[in-house]
Write a protein that binds this DNA or RNA. Structure first.
Lengths: 205, 205
DNA sequence: GCCTTAAGATAGTAATCAGTCACTATCTAA
DNA sequence: TTAGATAGTGACTGATTACTATCTTAAGGC
């Protein structure tokens, strides 16, 4: 976060800055723990000024989640480009997602933020939309891989997609809570082959 | 939660009740969202009375997490008894854990409660202890399975343990957020074979 | 160099929260 | 029956919160 001294910004620029600050702080403390005062402090602004740009705090989170969704989907789209085959695409998505989380830890914190998602149906719908969209993407790649004969034909693709997402979540928990010694990228490289073997099953590598 | 009319409890009994209520409410709203007022209401008590039995709110969470840890470990211990082999034990643990989460949803909510774990080092240490203990248990089973020649010898057991925990987390997210149509148990039965294939690798089933 | 406009400051409000404290009601044991 | 112990009450405090008036001042077009 850079410090701007007495610089008055346009409404549009300030809105974007607020979203960035919200994403940044949510990555450190989770949505629940971030106050508008903290956001204002991070920008060298008074707390009341925030509400000139957003009607409510929840509106900030909605904007922040939308920003994250678009950024993540963009990153995944770029990662998949130039993939040799569906399974290679899957692996690229996996690593791209982990890189994104390393850069924006707000993502897992929002997915697991419990109460807020329970109470605000708009936020809940947004997060669900991201997850279902992501799952559909994985299922599509798995179906392509099946057609290409790269994975076993009896594979439950929805289960395999859940396992894919779980693999990412498991890694996040290992890093965030257990504080594993190996880096996330390093750990990830050990995990993916196990997953691959799982979905390939009897098919020769 | 049952309603007790004007029944005065011993300090010990009331403490246990507070822990139960805390676990119950944390499963519904997450640790962060539960207030001492809500706890008191659930027991037909005034809010101030809580603090005759616990010095601080965090002390309640510490007691609640300890209770959950012992209960979970007990359930896992029972589940593993009578397992035919290490991999069977792993599968029993998997299903027992999911059953436990279905009964006490507080567990995943606490693991992912972000801010509180960041700010309270005692809580954080407790949760980490649970996770590392659990991971050690899985690694042990995997090593036994390797010795028995049931899984591929080059398997990274720590990665496989992370994937095991991620499988559970992925299922929880699917149910809680996406609200998958299939039941968790049903979904679980589709997931585990994929995991098994992943760790068996080239070894014949 | 004004003058309008909109970003921001200042100083609130009402609600909610954990934790305190003096007191009261109830239980138990002699 | 009574006296001591203690679970529970009720009213409170101080801190924090999202959000809102009203005033101030900087920026940009003319």
């Amino acid at each position: 976060m850079e410090i701007k001294l007495k610089q008055r910004l346009s409404a549009e620029a300030r809105q974007e800055q607020i979203i960035q600050v919200a994403v940044d702080l949510a990555g450190k403390r989770g949505m629940q723990g971030v106050t508008t005062q903290e956001m204002a402090d991070a920008m060298g602004l008074t707390q009341g000024a925030i509400f000139r740009h957003f009607p409510t705090k929840d509106a900030i989170w909605i904007a922040a989640i939308n920003w994250l969704r678009e950024s993540l989907m963009g990153a995944l789209g770029v990662a998949v480009q130039g993939a040799r085959d569906p399974l290679d695409a899957l692996e690229r998505m996996f690593h791209a997602h982990l890189s994104f989380i390393a850069q924006y830890p707000a993502i897992p914190r929002i997915v697991f933020s419990g109460q807020m998602l329970d109470e605000n149906p708009v936020l809940r719908a947004l997060v669900r939309e991201i997850l279902t969209g992501y799952e559909a993407r994985i299922v599509m790649l798995l179906l392509q891989a099946r057609e290409a004969g790269m994975i076993r034909p009896d594979l439950d693709e929805h289960g395999a997609a859940t396992l894919f997402l779980g693999m990412i979540q498991g890694l996040v928990v290992q890093i965030k809570i257990v504080g594993v010694d190996r880096s996330m990228q390093e750990e990830a490289r050990k995990l993916f082959p196990i997953y691959l073997a799982g979905i390939k099953g009897g098919v020769a590598a």
